[in-house]
């Protein structure tokens, strides 16, 4: 149990057995004006989720190594009076830092990221839901119809959980893509389908009424339970 509130009145100081927290192993920081002490080596995302603060993520998964590719989990980290946008899934907690997970700057950046992602993969339900959740009603970029946002979930899933490593990133820059070596079917792929299962783009297709390749926004004013997901 890595969490301990600094406020002695809440915990009474004795709620957790001493066994669970060794003083040397704790780091105190402020997340959204709340002071917390968490274990060293945790990331800001883990600490915030521990506290129940929601930070949207795409390329993060508990069972896989943090990647920091989608940048959707950006937070404002204030260190020595300077504020900086950092990907919370790869930023380790540090003594005395101040974190804002939902400031105006963060929201603006996240909306921009979702806009850019949706303009490349408008058919993904995950992305359309994110856009509706953030209240994005307009995409200012040219819409494309790709089926990959290069989040790397499938690559890490294949390598780390399925112990296969059949697919990987190839090329770089604008030509970067996920593929098998030499574009030939891989000998070590067992066809387990874990890459498809974890993909946020191809498995969940947006089924709202919309023009193909457009922003959906069907769920923007609807309660999720009414919509019949």
């Amino acid at each position: 149990m890595p969490f301990k509130s600094t406020d002695e009145n809440i915990t009474g100081g004795k709620d957790f057995p001493d066994l669970y927290y060794e003083e040397d192993n704790l780091v105190s920081l402020t997340i959204d004006r709340q002071k917390v002490r968490v274990e060293k080596g945790m990331t800001i995302l883990e600490a915030a989720r521990w506290m129940g603060i929601k930070i949207p993520t795409l390329c993060y998964h508990e069972g896989l190594t943090p990647w920091g590719g989608c940048r959707l989990c950006v937070v404002e980290v204030i260190k020595r009076g300077r504020s900086k946008l950092e990907a919370s899934c790869t930023y380790p907690v540090a003594e005395g830092i101040q974190v804002k997970t939902n400031s105006e700057k963060v929201q603006k950046t996240r909306r921009m990221i979702v806009e850019l992602l949706i303009s490349s993969c408008p058919n993904s339900r995950t992305l359309q839901d994110l856009a509706s959740g953030m209240g994005i009603t307009e995409i200012r970029f040219k819409m494309e119809d790709n089926d990959c946002i290069l989040c790397g979930l499938c690559v890490r899933m294949c390598k780390e959980q399925m112990m296969s490593g059949g697919i990987g990133f190839i090329n770089r820059g604008a030509k970067r893509e996920v593929s098998t070596p030499f574009h030939k079917s891989s000998e070590i792929c067992r066809g387990c389908g874990a890459c498809m299962y974890i993909c946020p783009v191809v498995t969940l297709q947006c089924r709202g009424r919309r023009e193909p390749g457009d922003l959906c926004n069907a769920c923007i004013n609807v309660c999720p339970t009414d919509f019949g997901f």
Partner: peptide, 25 residues
Amino acid sequence: SESTIRHVSRRLSIPLSQVFGVATF
């Protein structure tokens, strides 16, 4: 060559996809 990359992957026990990824990156 393709055979070289396959050989390196086998000898270093690094997944072929990773070796190919580095070689194309």
